[in-house]
Design a protein around this nucleic acid. Structure first.
Lengths: 347, 347
DNA sequence: CCGGTTTGCTTAATCGTTAAACCATTTTGC
DNA sequence: GCAAAATGGTTTAACGATTAAGCAAACCGG
């Protein structure tokens, strides 16, 4: 590898002092350890000349702190998570932490493996976007006193730090918006999942209908399996459109559902919003550039990512810090896909 | 933090042997170090019971190998790089390596800082998507005998391993395709950059025109600054459309240019492809879902990512391995944005 | 000029793991 | 029956950095 890395010892040798002294000086503890000013300057000089770079591994081993955060994310090819990852990484670096990222692909056992790999690398704490059925691993981490902050998804029955979006409200707002725009047969496509964020999105949708005295029909609420999105979304849309009465608006509960749904809608030749209004969760260029720009729920990625890091870092500095449960409100970006309904047929 | 991690010594104590022996056994070197079978089994038993997890920091410090790869990428919010990152991470894990990722935001000095941070963490090698003007840092790495593989972008004058796309050919094919489809006034919007991949895309475009005996006008080839894409793309498009004669087709040299360009085109009310045909580099959902699905250059991300890791790992195992220069061909995905031109005005 | 403080440094232990060198017993070969 | 080889371990040092403790020499006050 590299010819040979410069160590404290090399500097010590050149400066004719002990390695300890070099360590003191380079860590700014020269004064309190009564190092002569000239010696200190000389040591710093030599360190610079040799281009000394401290060995982080050794530091971490000795101190028990690695200044590393493990980021466990479901899927980085989802632009929402890709952006979150970028923000987390930036904020972490700001505090002097490095991020090691890994993807769980929405699979609890992969996520556990990943956590173990990262633990062996002695990360100081985790930021986790939980996969379904991964509660056990969180209890495990808690038992071991390993710090973590949940991001985007959390389990209300697990008392832990988390940062997330108020999904209930976001979904309620999305539904209400469609109602305001004159839509009456509003459907939703969600994932078949027990996870709280998904259930909250569904609950918000239902409440929006209820509060506006609109009927809510079974066929209007479809859930699809994560592993088979393409076909199941198509089937779901078919079902919703052939229901009696058919839906005149659909809320997609995630970005991926929307992308698949829109592709199918295009294939059917359905026009948005005249035939069908659309609102979606997630956020990406595609929503602005779709034939008819899509109304979407914009989550506060910047704050979500930053807060997760802030909370984790604070907790690492003082583990007694009390539990933080942070929810940010999402913002509905209203575009043409949900603009005022024009009654199609005579009344 | 964790109550207290179990170390080799803890196991050694319980098993009444030395720590070294435990190390041998747990590393599968029991046989060659002549450890009794029963002892070995007993040690493994105890290790399991205590849930022993080796300390990777200590291992790395001792062995001088961290089994970590540093991935330096320009911008993970670009879906192309986000996907590449996922592939790299998977492939690396397959070899037992962990990836530490950091973004340079297309800034050479940030990239250098990042490389230093990762070096301090003793990564074994790098996979780098170079930013502009970062040749110096590559020479620096070479001088220090630090292994790296360039991904997606490379410098033909720097003799090093790289994995990239044949951008010249991809661009030539894109241009030729437009010619085949009946377009005669073909423009391109690229980044103002000396980087080879960008120059190759421009060269491919030019050659396609030349080989087909089409004129090539200055105003048809626009370059924009990376830091001011939105306004400059708009200006570029204005220029190209008001040129005499105006362009009837545009090739966007990157995903980001296309997204900004399409947004502006929408605002102008220009119809694709009847008013203007489009072909773009990059790949993302947005190209399929745009009002008129966009023809794009699909790069072989899977192979690009995997090959980069393969080459690096091979080189780490045997630094004498000879230099690999790998180019994959891109595939042009033909969609409606470039379909056969129908003469608009009478001739 | 003597005891105590201050100054300026060194030594040694430690983090967890590994690898070479070493040391008793047994076993084997001839 | 005796040297050589095999068996089953242990000890020690090292990776690089940190930090408590130790130890001279210089300095100070009375």
């Amino acid at each position: 590898m590299s010819k040979k890395k410069v160590s404290l010892k090399d500097i010590a040798l050149k400066a004719n002092v002990s390695a300890a002294l070099v360590s003191y000086v380079l860590n700014g503890k020269g004064r309190q350890n009564r190092v002569r000013k000239e010696k200190a300057e000389q040591i710093i000089e030599i360190a610079k000349k040799l281009n000394y770079q401290p060995n982080h591994l050794a530091k971490s081993l000795r101190s028990g702190k690695s200044f590393t955060i493990g980021l466990v994310i479901a899927d980085i090819s989802n632009p929402f998570f890709a952006n979150i990852a970028r923000i987390v990484e930036n904020q972490a670096r700001h505090y002097g932490y490095t991020v090691i990222y890994g993807s769980s692909d929405e699979d609890a056992s992969k996520s556990m493996d990943l956590i173990n790999v990262l633990l062996n690398r002695r990360v100081d704490g985790f930021i986790i976007v939980s996969a379904e059925n991964s509660e056990k691993q969180l209890y495990y981490l808690m038992e071991q006193n390993i710090l973590f902050v949940l991001l985007d998804r959390y389990f209300p029955e697990i008392k832990t730090d988390y940062v997330s979006t108020n999904n209930y409200k976001a979904s309620f707002d999305a539904g209400s918006h469609l109602v305001d725009m004159g839509y009456k047969n509003i459907g939703m496509i969600a994932y078949k999942s027990k996870m709280f964020h998904m259930q909250e999105r569904i609950r918000g949708y239902r409440e929006a209908l209820k509060k506006n005295h609109l009927p809510s029909r079974k066929k209007w609420l479809q859930d699809v399996n994560f592993n088979n999105v393409k076909t199941e979304v198509a089937t779901a849309i078919d079902t919703m459109l052939s229901a009696i009465p058919p839906v005149d608006a659909i809320i997609f509960a995630t970005y991926n559902l929307a992308v698949n749904g829109l592709k199918y809608i295009d294939r059917l030749g359905i026009k948005v919003p005249s035939d069908l209004a659309i609102v979606s969760f997630g956020q990406a260029d595609v929503f602005d550039l779709y034939a008819c720009p899509i109304t979407y729920v914009m989550q506060d990625m910047e704050n979500l990512g930053k807060a997760a890091v802030d909370i984790l870092v604070k907790k690492m500095e003082n583990p007694e810090e009390k539990i933080q449960e942070v929810l940010y409100d999402a913002r509905l970006i209203e575009q043409e896909s949900s603009k005022t309904r024009i009654a199609a047929s005579a009344f």
